[in-house]
């Protein structure tokens, strides 16, 4: 089940699930802290997909999870390059599924059919991280602002909520938005007022102050994806 792919001179962990001879789904978790809060959900839903006969890959992005590469060397474009290598070595990948910020890099493999749960713009992720920085600065008696922090971040990089972000990452993240494609299934929660192609019951576990798991939501995700992949 544990595999790895080679990228930029390093081995990056990639979990593999399901039958070897089935179409392969590339799964992209949320980014930064949000990924840590849904690790359990991601693994569980990939396992359930395997039970439904769908093979999947759940790769570590360089600088994230078990990766030995410092996050400060990563960027949105570097992550996309890593996904291309991952798909070449462990694919072929036929479909892509992402949660939240994962949608910012789901176009890496070209115009494959894509499933997205509650996609988010990069600027929103950056804004939340900037806010935690402003709050901790305040506690230390430093008066900082989003504008001033971003100005420094764009040229020299910045440490936000424990994440070392390079100037390149800051600039790319600030302007990153989920890409357009005709082959997207957009899924949201039942109580989300925004438009969607499908609805599932569950909760945005990536927001939780304390990590939690929701087996029913993992099952709902797996079933929706399996039905979508089978067309």
């Amino acid at each position: 089940m544990n595999a790895s792919y080679r990228f930029d001179g390093n081995d990056e962990l990639c979990l593999r699930f399901g039958p070897d001879d089935a179409p392969r789904l590339l799964i992209l978790p949320p980014l930064f802290d949000e990924a840590n809060r849904v690790r359990h959900l991601m693994v569980e839903f990939a396992r359930l997909l395997g039970d439904l006969g769908i093979a999947s890959l759940l790769p570590d992005l360089p600088g994230c999870n078990e990766s030995l590469v410092p996050l400060a060397t990563a960027s949105i474009s570097l992550w996309q390059a890593a996904l291309i290598n991952c798909a070449e070595q462990l694919g072929p990948v036929t479909h892509v599924a992402s949660l939240r910020g994962g949608a910012l890099i789901d176009g890496a493999l070209g115009d494959l059919p894509r499933w997205r749960l509650a996609p988010v713009k990069g600027g929103q992720l950056l804004r939340t991280m900037l806010r935690t920085r402003i709050a901790s600065d305040r506690e230390a008696g430093i008066n900082s602002s989003s504008e001033a922090l971003m100005e420094t971040a764009r040229t020299s990089g910045i440490e936000l909520a424990g994440n070392s972000l390079s100037p390149c990452m800051v600039r790319e993240l600030d302007s990153a938005a989920p890409s357009q494609s005709s082959a997207i299934r957009l899924v949201r929660f039942a109580d989300d007022p925004l438009d969607a192609d499908g609805r599932i019951t569950g909760a945005p576990l990536w927001l939780r102050a304390e990590p939690a798991h929701d087996p029913a939501m993992a099952a709902a995700m797996a079933q929706d994806i399996a039905a979508w992949m089978r067309g």
């Binding site: 929103q124 804004r127 927001l207």
Partner: peptide
Amino acid sequence: ELDSMAVAGLLTEME
């Protein structure tokens, strides 16, 4: 549970 990290997330979600 409402620490500064949670407050940051809360504000962005409200926005």
